[in-house]
């Protein structure tokens, strides 16, 4: 097992090298609760505020460090997520996070959980809010266990996000 991440890699660090995958159950349940009680707009608002608020230390590092900081973060992030298979590519105008196996979808399925169909959209609404705070843009393609997150500078001139490019999650 890897050593515990250091504060240089992630904004919040624990004493153990990886998280407990059962917490993905709580994230999925949180989405279901918010969608049922506050509706889709409420859920999106939650993700955007979480991205701008809780994740502000990450956003500030991205703004200061640019794409290399983005790449470092995602490598450290997925190293601490049990069961993930992810490749992070650094290109001149973007970072591509290629998720070959999403640890959350994998664990939710293994645990027999009903996954909220909007689950994969959370990565877009959360990621876009974080990217915007850092002066970047974020797009997401794929989903349901395999996807690609793109974090880019303005020079990349990425087309707008089509939500139809994000697959619904299935249990």
């Amino acid at each position: 097992m890897n050593a515990a991440p250091t504060s240089g890699d992630l904004p919040y660090v624990d004493t153990k090298p990886q998280g407990s995958a059962d917490f993905y159950y709580a994230t999925n349940a949180t989405f279901r609760f918010l969608l049922r009680r506050l509706g889709r707009e409420g859920w999106i608002g939650y993700l955007q505020e979480l991205g701008r608020g809780y994740f502000s230390p990450v956003n500030e590092r991205w703004r200061a460090g640019g794409l290399p900081a983005v790449a470092r973060y995602w490598r450290a992030f997925f190293a601490a997520e049990p069961g993930s298979r992810v490749e992070v590519r650094e290109l001149p105008d973007r970072v591509e996070v290629c998720v070959h196996e999403c640890p959350a979808i994998r664990h939710l399925r293994a645990g027999g959980r009903e996954i909220v169909r909007e689950y994969c959209q959370h990565c877009y609404f959360l990621g876009a809010a974080r990217a915007e705070a850092a002066g970047l843009t974020m797009r997401l393609q794929g989903g349901n266990g395999v996807c690609r997150h793109t974090f880019a500078t303005a020079a990349a001139a990425l087309p707008p996000q089509a939500l139809g490019d994000i697959k619904e999650a299935t249990s």
Binding site: D14, F23, A104, C123, L126
Partner: peptide, 22 residues
Amino acid sequence: MIGCYDFCGHYEWTFGWLERVG
């Protein structure tokens, strides 16, 4: 993506957000 490594952090943040909203 919301991860499980720092789960307790965004879980705690969520309590405060929920109280402000509802």
